[in-house]
Design a protein around this nucleic acid. Structure first.
Lengths: 207, 207, 207, 207
DNA sequence: GATGAATGAGCCTTCATTCAT
DNA sequence: TATGAATGAAGGCTCATTCAT
């Protein structure tokens, strides 16, 4: 949680530049998710921050750049999680479950949702390559843990690519239907999915 | 396969209206998926059909209306499948597997992909309601079959809502990664997913 | 009154061409007056006649041409009246009153209203010249009768141009406020105006 | 007279908004009257002000809105006159003559001409209601003064509605034929019409 | 750094007119 | 002659971006 509201960030003149950048991204992500990238005008973003449109250009060089920022921020969240999971160790199945937990959690947060719900066609070619690369890294991690699990016997042999995709898909979709404060909490959901999505995958699940 | 190319449909002045409407939708869906809704100009759609932009207005009353048409067409495909599945019968698990097969197949086809990959924010309020209603019907079907399976003992008791969502999510995501002619065929994928996504759900899957 | 409705005119194949032209003009005039020239599409005109748009081009070569037709028809009505008034004779004041009566009557009829209420800017240069010429003829007639009246002593000396214009203006304006079936009838209005507009003009009206 | 030309108003970035709004209206009114509303493109209006089309949208939200602005400005002129006339007092006939003078003057000015010569069908429904309401207020004033005059004996009894309409019509028509610098001046015209249009109306004008 | 104003580029939509049957 | 379909031409409006203060 921020200790100041996004508007307050802009209240004082000489506040940290990164803080302001983040405030812009937060405001933009919220509006992009609510109304779509195209239906969100920079005026809307600026207004929600209590500043004016041209001021945004002090922190981002274009609207596309803000969109890219949202994606990058989302991926930063994922990467942080990936690091923690590695540190925690365990066999392939353990790590897969930890990844599912972490990824599911991210999909309940605005920047995580951005990764799935915002139209990637709006990214510039260069930006798209960046995003695609990072996305592949995540896919790789899913595959890697599955392969690890197969190798160490914690996971039943399977088509790794398909399995990784359907698990990732099940998780990505969370960003479309999860509503905070309604139904399960984010934490409960993480546990549930870690369990449900690995039940048919874990060793011994096949008769 | 069509017996005529999209361009040929417009070769003769007087041809079946529905055929032309469908040709427009096909062309639009392809471009929307490839380049995004916004980056696709009506000129592009028209050009790919060998006609001029205003001619499109003989078949659709706006660009938004074409988008809605894509969604409706996708849902028509789903609804047709839903009918067939009902006719086929079986216990809850059988039906769920049939639904997964059918739905996975649809997600490998352009109009199915449209349902997932095109930004719904571009739909008018009225159109969005239409789409949302039909989408809920599909969600309901997933839940219904799971409940049926629990009742008839073919499926282990579980959180129906969550289970329906993660299965649907795994399937929807197919529209993002499936590339025809690369890897598994659509048919193979359907079988694989029908098996994989129910393994942890079917009776006896829990020790 | 027509003995057939406009739609019926087009029912039989080989009806008089002029009859069809007139039917088109009637329909167009009504719509032009009701909705304005620009807001009236040729589709609307065609629909009100029970035919299709391209059929109109058998009788008029453009929408502008239809507009010109309305103007010409209106002026034909005036010219016919002018002829009758000349035949009737009388002194300048008598003729002026007859002119007022006739002109007021025409201003209560659709084609008369067209002359005043339709935007002349839509006429082509050539058409505008035609219309302007005929309009000047009418103005001339007003002036001529006033001059005649001054010469023969039936009308008090005055600024002929101004007088002609204000009388014509008073009459033209009828086309904006006259509603058939409400208030005075067209005939009563003609008498009233013939009296009112000449009271301050006739000999002896100045003390 | 303006102390700056219309173009100069837009020379500096930060100048009184109202001044710019008025400059837009002036430019638009001139072009609308000269070429008609439809044949005037916003590009034309912008060009005549030395700015570009979208800049107009800083001051008006649509082309229709500019048209409405012209009408409103015209009515503001009238309303200002109506206030002065009331202050000046006099009997019904005096006031009617003052009204004729003022109204005739307004009909020689661009914004006054707009009220009569621009096609009201281009106004939105809402705007049309606004305009119609104000127009009725003016009509009411004509009627009111005539009634007052009849009551105080300065005007002969007559059909008030018809009389008001023909006087107003005679005046409105000024906007169609008056050319500044040709023939009578605006002031002379006002006097002439105040005299001419009341000669047959004033007490004692009927024998 | 911030802002009010202005711009450039683009695209949807309309509709009179024409074409092909 | 009549029509369904197609087109050419045009113009209003939006909005990300830049300019000038």
């Amino acid at each position: 949680m921020l200790s100041v509201t996004p508007q307050e960030v802009f209240d004082t003149r000489h506040r940290n530049r990164d803080q302001k950048r983040t405030a812009v991204l937060n405001a933009a992500a919220e509006l992009f998710l609510k109304n779509g990238y195209h239906r969100t005008r920079l005026d809307d973003v600026a207004e929600s921050l209590g500043i004016t449109k041209p001021a945004l250009y002090n922190y981002f060089k274009s609207k596309h750049d803000i969109l890219l920022g949202c994606h990058m921020h989302g991926h930063d969240l994922i990467d942080a999680s990936l690091g923690e999971i590695e540190e925690e160790g365990g066999d392939g199945l353990d790590r897969l479950r930890n990844l599912i937990r972490a990824y599911a959690g991210i999909m309940t947060m605005p920047f995580g949702m951005c990764l799935v719900r915002l139209d990637e066609h709006e990214l510039s070619d260069k930006a798209l390559k960046l995003v695609t690369t990072r996305r592949r890294m995540v896919d790789q991690r899913f595959k890697h843990y599955i392969e690890t699990g197969i190798a160490d016997g914690s996971i039943e042999p399977c088509d790794v690519r398909i399995t990784a995709f359907w698990i990732a898909g099940a998780l990505n979709w969370v960003s479309h239907w999860f509503k905070p404060g309604k139904g399960l909490s984010s934490g409960q959901l993480q546990e549930q999915l870690a369990e449900d999505l690995t039940r048919g995958v874990a060793r011994g699940s096949r008769r």
